Computed example of a mutant assay.
Amino acid sequence: MRCNLLSLAAASALVPHALAWGTVGHATVAYIATGLIKNETAAYCKKVLGDQSANVLASIASWADSYRYEAGGGFSTPFHWIDAIDNPPYSCDVDYDRDCTDAGCIVSAIMNYTTIQRVNIAAGTIEPDSLKFLVHFLGDIHQPLHDENYGAGGNNITVYVDGSKWNLHAAWDTAFITKITGGTNITTAKAFSTRLLASIQSPTGVYATASKKWFRSSLKDPKAAAMKWATETNNYVCTAVLPQGPLAIEGKELNGTYYQVAVPVVEEQMAKAGVRLAAWLDLLVTGSTPFLGCPSKRAVRAVPLVV
């Protein structure tokens, strides 16, 4: 979640017990992935993370948000987003060379930790942090304001949701999800993920057809995969987040039409994140995924890490 400590504290004060995207959003994405991954992938994750429970991915899904504030974890702060320097609502686009800084970004982080995981799997090494980062960053990259520079990813735009004051980023991270689900804890995330999973897996589900096209990526080019996800998600900044520009929502209550447009975007992006996380982990561990429909060679090359 792209907030500083002050904004996190402010959000917590505004919504008692709210633990932001990390609790409900990230856990929901992780639960969806858990419901879709192969048994072999699930066994691998349980072994690496030292957790044999059904909550194995959900329990670490927001780890990266707290790690960035720990001693030695500050280097990972820029990895939670990519600052698209575009011009919403007139133009939305992500450019890696322009938008990914020397300190890194979410695209370079997905590239790096995918490479690290491939090396770990090939060597039989047990190293949990790279897996934890991937679980988190594949969630973050599907939130539109994690792929946007304007207003510090919406952190500098004040809005209201049901009378409570938020910044726009936190509204999308937290307030909307809380309003949709009616809760703020991991139990809420489990119930939310069950509904979204049914929308993916049921023959009559909302995403039954679309979800089959959500993953067309390869481990051979994690940069291309991450850029595709970031670009697709960034497009929502123009169509749903800032459709009439920031002045139209600054200091305003985000209800009515705005909220009605936001809800299906939030739900679909979380469903996409869960599908893509499951497929990415399946490719890493088993070399194939039902969502791709064909095997992926798992030969590990010496790939230099990038920022």
Rank of each mutant, 00 (worst) to 15 (best):
N4G: 04
L14S: 15
V15T: 15
A18R: 03
A27D: 10
L49K: 03
L49I: 04
Q52E: 15
S53P: 06
V56A: 09
Y69C: 02
G72H: 08
S76W: 03
F79V: 00
W81R: 10
A84E: 01
A84R: 01
N87A: 08
P88S: 02
R98Q: 15
D102V: 14
A103R: 14
T115A: 07
T115E: 14
P128H: 11
F133I: 14
L134N: 11
G139S: 12
I141Y: 05
P144A: 10
E148T: 06
G154I: 06
Y160F: 15
W166S: 05
L168M: 06
W172Y: 08
T181D: 04
G182K: 08
K190Q: 13
S193L: 01
T194L: 10
L196G: 09
I200W: 01
I200D: 02
T204M: 03
G205M: 01
V206I: 12
Y207E: 04
K220H: 10
P222Y: 06
A224Q: 14
A225I: 00
A230K: 07
Y236G: 00
G245F: 11
L247F: 13
K252L: 00
L254C: 10
N255T: 15
G256K: 02
V265Y: 08
A271T: 03
A273T: 10
C294T: 06
P295C: 09
S296K: 05
K297E: 14
V306D: 02
V306L: 12
